[in-house]
């Protein structure tokens, strides 16, 4: 068993685009943002110009509850680059508002991950001003 913790090394930093900048700006304010459609009320992620549900361009940024359940996961033992400490656990989260996000699981042992595990976002500040959204078990 290994406690999963945020990465602290020289891992790749996000390079936001004009489209995704509000998402990354929100993280610095401890807001997990997604795009809400004014036409169908559906949620869209990753950041887009049109709604993934109906194609409308009436998208506005909203703040998520940051809660969801684990849709899928993988425990990685051979790191992408040596800067990553293993094991780490990439997860796809079904977020409450009806969108899916890729992140890493932290705050529990690597073998505690399970289908539909309830998780919440946790904001991890890297030393150069970048904030990454990780997820941890709720009440864990």
């Amino acid at each position: 068993m290994t406690l999963l913790v945020p990465q602290t090394g020289a891992i790749p930093r996000p390079k936001p685009s004009s489209l995704s900048q509000p998402f990354w700006d929100g993280l610095g304010l401890h807001e997990l943002r997604f795009q809400r459609c004014g036409a169908c009320r559906g949620a869209t992620h990753t950041p887009a110009l049109v709604c993934s549900r109906c194609g409308s361009d009436e998208l506005t940024w909203e703040v998520s509850t940051g809660r969801g359940i684990v849709y899928s996961w993988t425990t990685v033992w051979r790191p992408q680059t040596p800067e990553f400490v293993v094991p780490y656990v990439p997860i796809v989260v079904d977020v409450e508002e009806g969108w899916q996000m890729l992140s890493n699981l932290v705050g529990c042992d690597h073998d505690e991950v399970a289908p539909d595990l309830a998780v919440e976002v946790v904001f991890h500040h890297l030393d150069d001003g970048v904030t990454l959204p990780y997820f941890r078990p709720i009440g864990g």
Binding site: I11, P12, K15, V76, P79, Q80, L132
Partner: peptide
Amino acid sequence: ESTAPWTRPGNEFVAPFGMFTAAEFALI
């Protein structure tokens, strides 16, 4: 010491989370 370059694109929504092809396919 890293996975092959064609397995780990630098996208903002995957690279910071340690993704490379094996992890992408493992999730499916």
